[in-house]
């Protein structure tokens, strides 16, 4: 088969509105602003919370923020990859719950190694189911993963009879818990996965294909990119990352419990969009998503330290999310301003 002759990112870029020569400088400034905006939001939050609480900008608390970002970061990486292709995965929270339950059951009956292997494996199987239906049955990702959202969560409940399953101290908890040089081990795992996904997205053909498929799927197909296979891989990756996140959350809370993944779904999507990855695909990336994850983690941590009224906390989160998206979103692309 002939290899595609067109560089996929070029195909992706061609879907962007052309910047006229006279508007080139302003356009570049706007692009730079989109990249810088999440940093600005982050810095504003850090300064604000440092003033509100003397504890906030201490090494111990920064490690806290790192630890509390780990699970969300891993899920956001999977979500980023899916969203780069213009799809969405609504099942990540339920995959996390199911994977955590299977790992917890395995940890009880077959030991640490089985748990460590099974969590990502369950995620992989869930991702394969999603990916096969989306890629080869050509069903919309929104509906397929909405089905997965219910089905995987229900399966977790069925396996566990709705009961939390505790994790014995030692074993998995020991392998993934604790800290190395003061840095929480679960954060190190999350950083390791981040590095792998960044390399895959930026320096491999697979990564370039992601942007091409998200930029314009039809053009990508015409240039010879195996769009179906890329979509399948994307959901496989999302599933594996949700399984890995399950392992980290399992260690963090020392138990698998019903609905444990559900709160992460909207947070992960929100973090990715806040970071600047477009819901319609083709722009953004995993590095951008770090900013979104940190914004959410810092907000949660800072408001607890500042003893903000619980009702006001939700208002503040809502305002910051909208403000961050308003600053980072490329509104020149009509398809994402609907």
């Amino acid at each position: 088969m002939t290899k595609p002759s067109l560089d996929p990112p070029v195909a992706a870029r061609r879907t962007e509105p052309a910047v006229s020569p006279t508007r080139g400088q302003a356009g570049r400034a706007r692009v730079n602003w989109y990249v810088a905006a999440p940093f600005v939001v982050l810095v504003l939050l850090i300064v604000g919370f440092s003033i509100a609480s003397p504890i906030f900008f201490t090494p111990d608390n920064l490690l806290n923020i790192m630890q509390s970002s780990a699970v969300l970061l891993v899920l956001a990486l999977g979500t980023t990859v899916v969203m780069l292709t213009g799809s969405i995965d609504l099942s990540i929270g339920s995959v996390l719950t199911l994977s955590a339950y299977v790992a917890a059951i395995a940890a009880q009956s077959a030991g640490t190694t089985a748990a460590v292997l099974l969590a990502p494996l369950v995620g992989l199987v869930c991702g394969a189911l999603n990916g096969a239906l989306i890629s080869y049955a050509r069903l919309p990702s929104f509906l397929v993963t909405l089905g997965g959202y219910f089905a995987f969560d229900g399966l977790a409940g069925y396996l566990s009879d709705g009961q939390p399953i505790g994790l014995a101290y030692g074993g998995v908890a020991e392998g993934f818990g604790g800290s190395v040089g003061g840095v929480p081990v679960i954060s190190l795992w999350a950083i390791g996965l981040l590095v792998l996904v960044v390399i895959a997205a930026r320096y491999t053909r697979f990564g370039r294909y992601l942007y091409a498929v998200g930029g314009n799927e039809r053009t990508a197909r015409l240039t010879g990119i195996p769009v179906r296979r890329i979509k399948l891989y994307v959901f496989l990756l999302s599933g594996v990352l949700a399984g890995a996140a399950a392992l980290l959350q399992l260690v963090r809370t020392a138990s698998a419990s019903p609905g444990m993944g559900e709160p992460f779904l909207l947070l992960a999507i929100g973090a990715v969009v806040m970071g600047g990855t477009s819901l319609s695909g083709g722009s953004g990336g995993p590095v951008h998503s770090i900013m979104g994850v940190l914004v959410i983690a810092i907000l949660a941590n800072g408001m607890v330290l500042a003893n903000v009224n619980p009702y006001a906390q939700n208002v503040i989160i809502g305002v910051v999310v909208v403000a961050a998206v308003a600053l980072t979103m490329k509104r020149t692309r009509d398809s994402i301003v609907k």
Binding site: S53, I55, T58, N61, N64, S68, T253, A300, N301, V304
Partner: peptide, 10 residues
């Protein structure tokens, strides 16, 4: 979990 981790630091 994240709430108590923050509060124990504070």
């Amino acid at each position: 979990t994240p709430v108590i981790e923050s509060l124990l630091t504070a």
